[in-house]
């Protein structure tokens, strides 16, 4: 199994997290996303015509899209069936719903980070405002979950929904987005970093 990886990418970090959580042996191929834009090179477009990372190669097939890779890895390699709860349709529905939400976080909070850290030319005020709207929704949801005794996005245990949402929320400070006003998000981050085999990525503020 091989991950086409960029060390500063939150979307690649999602896959690194799940590979570690599931203790799956794998190799990484470093992609020069910045400054080399290798993900837009002809060679890489053969692997993913969308020119995006991460890509996972397993059993001779390429899987693209961070959320899709999470679903694939959890369905295939999680013997506990908890990260992608295939046997519980209502929980599965909630997980899928928050996977889509994670994509919106990428298009806002991650965009602000690309602007501030790597100098991408985009409307950073709009990206930050979009991220704050989503974080308000996530913070309210996490607070409600806590009131019902649930520590995680979809229920009582972490799922791929938590992994999908975690990186660009936790890295928001890199893009000038303060998490100060989101106490439930801060508590969720503190719980997340205590998961067994969790590895920190630079830019994450743990709020301890």
């Amino acid at each position: 199994m091989k991950l086409f990886d960029y060390v500063l990418s939150g979307n690649c970090y999602k896959i690194r997290l799940l590979l570690d959580f599931l203790e799956l042996s794998h190799e990484k191929q470093a992609v020069d996303f910045f400054p080399g834009r290798e993900h837009k090179s002809d060679a890489f477009l053969q692997i993913n015509p969308l020119g995006q990372i991460p890509v996972l190669e397993d059993d001779g097939a390429y899987i693209r899209d961070a959320q899709a890779i999470l679903v694939y890895l959890a369905s295939r390699y999680d013997p506990t069936g908890t990260w992608w709860p295939i046997n519980d349709p209502s929980e599965l529905g909630r997980v899928a719903q928050w996977l889509a939400f994670a994509d919106s976080i990428t298009s806002t909070a991650s965009a602000a980070r690309l602007h501030d850290v790597l100098g991408y030319d985009l409307d950073v005020a709009q990206a930050r405002a979009g991220a704050h709207k989503l974080f308000r929704v996530l913070d309210d949801h996490l607070a409600n979950q806590e009131l019902q005794g649930f520590n995680w996005i979809a229920g009582s245990n972490p799922t791929v929904a938590d992994i999908a949402c975690f990186p660009y929320v936790a890295l928001a400070g890199d893009g000038g987005i303060e998490l100060f006003y989101y106490p439930a998000i801060q508590r969720w981050i503190r719980r997340f970093v205590k998961l067994p085999r969790f590895k920190l990525m630079p830019g994450i503020n743990i709020f301890d």
Binding site: V7, L8, F34, V117, D174, G203
Partner: peptide
């Protein structure tokens, strides 16, 4: 880059 992003924060 990993080292420098640790410094950046």
């Amino acid at each position: 880059q990993n080292i420098f992003l640790q410094d950046r924060m």
